[in-house]
Design a binder for these strands. Structure first.
Lengths: 130, 130
DNA sequence: AGAAAAGATGACGTTGACGTAAACGGGACG
DNA sequence: CGTCCCGTTTACGTCAACGTCATCTTTTCT
């Protein structure tokens, strides 16, 4: 079931990505599957990271931006300067996301209004056509 | 100042894009500058569209998705079937954006929590170092 | 054991969204 | 008049994020 480590195929099925994608993310140092001989085994850590990666992508962040953010979640034994640098980056991303949210709210409202307008146009055409 | 039509350079300065970008958008039928001889003149309509384009991009939409949406805003004399098709597309985008907003809220909360955690770690190191 | 399936590596291909360079034309101006 | 500078077209280059082979081991099934 949710065994400690997973094969590449299990990961693909679970997250709906291709093997190529996972190997690519490893090459870009976003994931760090351990090796059992030749084969990759993905850990819980990899799963957590992949989840964040895919979410980041949905927000339009680049893999590189995401990579920097990921370091926030697996802190390990990093230096203090390292850590506070990571915090700074995170703060920047947070600001991005809040700006994005504000803009998104605006855009949603505008889009709704515009749809309303066009919708009304359509229905008035109908009543005129009667 | 805000004259009726603008040259390519004025547009670039106003929206912080390159000429190449504007020509590219024209080629992709996202903008329709009129021609004065050889030269492009961008209208108010183009400015409104460009604003929406750039916003759409910030939300991670592709130019093609954006192009379809733009048709919602300059309705003109289009067919009814055309219009309701456009409305459908708009509804899809609206759903996208609302999903994105929900997820964004979640992600912002999580990121804040995580930053709090790391921040606490840092300050506790400091007090321990005293 | 033999065949099929899964996984790895390496290399090249692709798509979207532009960048960049070459070659040309037409006003502006010193 | 020569020469910038802005703008145009055409064409090739680039970068991210994978897709798609081809080729080679390694398991796994029967």
């Amino acid at each position: 079931m949710t065994s400690e480590t997973m094969t590449i195929r299990q990961m693909c099925d679970l997250f709906d990505v291709t093997p190529r994608t996972l190997r690519f993310y490893e090459a870009k140092e976003l994931l760090f599957p351990v090796r059992e001989g030749q084969r990759r085994l993905f850990t819980r850590r990899d799963r957590a990271r992949l989840k964040l990666i895919l979410r980041g992508k949905r927000f339009g962040f680049s893999l590189e931006e995401i990579r920097q953010l990921l370091d926030l979640y697996y802190v390990g034994d990093r230096q203090e300067t390292q850590l506070s640098r990571t915090l700074d980056i995170a703060q920047d991303r947070l600001n991005d996301m809040e700006r994005q949210r504000a803009e998104l709210n605006e855009a949603i409202d505008e889009l709704r209004n515009q749809m309303q307008l066009v919708g009304d146009m359509l229905s008035s055409r109908h009543s005129a056509a009667q």
